[in-house]
Design a protein around this nucleic acid. Structure first.
Lengths: 378, 378
DNA sequence: TTGTAAGCGTTATCAT
DNA sequence: ATGATAACGCTTACAA
């Protein structure tokens, strides 16, 4: 057995001599009752005589007793916590989703654990470990393979898929992509553009894949031949810049750090519009155009996706597609809370609508109001 | 708000009848050993015969055994998790800090719990509850009162203060404010400005208070009389706009929703420069100026704080002060990991340097390169 | 090298 | 209304 002696003695003195936290036993002894009674006093429902309750309460107060979350969870068989897993945690996308998720979950008195896999190869282990600490978790996109999701469910961890099509018996919450992409591409076609380049990586995420599909469908509907393939780029600004430079410039080395850009030589067959898979890529494209001396939207039209806060402040303001990010997180939370509470035993699948936000970067003149964004709390 | 119509209804019951997760006992029985041996196989250090280990490993695999984090934590007396508490979770500030915090903590194999108090009055209870689930936690700014921090330490929860001066025996990590604020205000004075207005709320956070102090010191150093008081505003864009409208306009109702603004009438004694306590406020000020027909920086200079991603994309680009946000989170994590690991028993206090980022909104011409920002992972 | 058994701090089921 | 006491799943002296 773990020797209690050691535990309390060993610590190399932090000036304030702190005694170990009080347990339910100490409270019981001090109040002259059994631990069962102390426990009852804590759980509201149980019947306890007013007098006893008062005594116990006083003991609790004097001992500054705080029940052990561990002991309680073990006894009850539930963690009272949920987790959310993302491939990455940087950027406006995640913070909004997390915000929505946390708000809902905390309101329910549950704790929130977050995990970013950051492309680490032990991602599966990390997720598995997280799963062992929560009653259920939300997994985003292609963070982990389908098989792993199944394994998780096997382990009795309720899981909700975020921005990913249904898998197994898990709930799923996504935003609409295909139709919006089709509308946006159609909009570009209506502007008269014919050589439109899709910048993004359909193989990197379900969302990107659907945007690419919708993009192609717009061409088909217009009786046009869609581009054979997308110009691959991750969802990062620097990568977007590189990709834009590649399709617009004439191949002069466009190294990442090369501020001078690839010179001003432009490709003859360059596209007249760039359909970026997200706003960060569009941001990179803006930079590339600046380097190449291309004016937006006169020389080239650009569209993004997400409507991140920066979008409306760019010059020209970025035409994009807004996703209800916070709502996405909130719904994921609600779904998870429902299943962990056993209120539902058959999976539901939701697809939240997105909204085309037409600004000036596509060639339109329109613009609109101002938003409020949360901020530095200090 | 998206419609719930698309919630697809019930597919019969969850088909997979899931048996409860395997325990260490089942593994032991299946492998023909004692639970102690199974436990030993899991903790690497313990000596176990190769043959036995193999048998146990196989049983673990077949049973898909995953040790209970609860049981383990209870037995070991540690949670293997840390928490971080913010007053709010929206905006670029938090996401960056959290990112830095999570990276460090996850790398150590520990889980991360996050909590936003969102001004809820039960904030203290929420924090106390969180504290019961972690080995230590980081508390930002004025989320909870000093007394509560002390109480937490009493409960054996290690705490690290973030963006807040030292309290009790807790570690503290902050960014430099006073000197930078002085430098920035001085810069404005050097531009010839004399009526400079500080927009922010010193009473809302230690950071804001220090910025106000430094701001005033710059005047004193220049032999000038500093403004008597700041123009109070929370850290939000809408509030910043309202405040800016109040000091610049001549009092026409500047209601929040009033897109038309307060007309074009300007105050005669209006300031020639706005020193905003953070970038969000500056953003609101930009909007206010647009409404009032004031050109930046010709008619009025504006500065912010934080250097949020949007800052460099504004027209004109915003002069501001950059804080090492991710580093702030990372350091907080490291400090926490050190104390929970018992590697240190006397508190340390760090103040990270900030960097003045001069762009065009203050009246300077300079500008600089492009950044990369994390993003939508889909 | 391996097994036995005593905790860890709760909740919950019995009796009383 | 209250008290014993058995779980809950694990780690770890100590014995064998």
């Amino acid at each position: 057995m773990p020797n209690a002696e050691n535990r309390r003695a060993a610590r190399p003195v932090r000036t304030t001599r702190r005694r170990p936290p009080a347990t339910i036993y100490e409270v019981a002894r001090k109040a002259g009752v059994s631990i069962a009674t102390v426990s009852r006093v804590q759980r509201r429902n149980a019947p306890v005589a007013e007098a006893t309750r008062a005594r116990v309460l006083r003991a609790i107060d004097e001992l500054r007793y705080q029940p052990s979350a561990l002991g309680r969870s073990l006894a009850m068989g539930r963690h009272g916590a949920t987790g959310i897993v993302f491939p990455d945690l940087s950027g406006p996308y995640y913070s909004e989703v997390i915000l929505g998720f946390e708000e809902q979950t905390a309101a329910e008195g549950k704790s929130v654990l977050i995990l970013g896999t950051h492309g680490r190869d032990q991602a599966t282990d990390l997720v598995r470990d997280l799963a062992a600490r929560v009653d259920g978790l939300v997994v985003m996109g292609r963070t982990i393979p389908d098989a792993e999701v199944a394994a998780l469910e096997e382990q009795h961890v309720h899981v909700v898929m975020l921005a990913r099509p249904p898998t197994g018996g898990a709930d799923s919450i996504r935003t609409e992509n295909r139709q919006s992409a089709r509308d946006l591409a159609r909009h570009l076609l209506d502007h008269g553009h014919r050589r439109i380049c899709f910048i993004g990586d359909p193989s990197s995420s379900p969302d990107a894949a659907e945007r690419w599909t919708g993009f192609c469908e717009a061409f088909a509907e217009a009786g046009l031949e869609p581009p054979a393939a997308p110009t691959v780029s991750s969802f990062r600004e620097t990568d977007g810049r590189r990709a834009a430079l590649a399709v617009l410039g004439d191949g002069e080395a466009a190294t990442d750090g090369d501020t001078a850009g690839g010179g001003k030589k432009l490709r003859a067959d360059r596209p007249t519009a760039l359909f970026c898979a997200n706003d960060e890529i569009a941001l990179g494209a803006y930079g590339a155009c600046a380097e190449l001396g291309l004016r937006i939207p006169d020389d080239i039209a650009i569209t993004g996706w997400d409507d991140i806060p920066i979008a409306r402040y760019l010059t020209p303001p970025l035409t994009t597609v807004r996703q209800p990010l916070r709502e996405l997180g909130a719904r994921a939370a609600r779904a998870l809370l429902e299943i962990t509470a056993g209120e539902r035993n058959s999976p539901i699948h939701q697809v939240l609508p997105t909204e085309l936000v037409v600004r000036a970067s596509c060639g339109c003149e329109r613009d609109e109001g101002k938003p409020d964004r949360g901020g530095d709390p200090n």
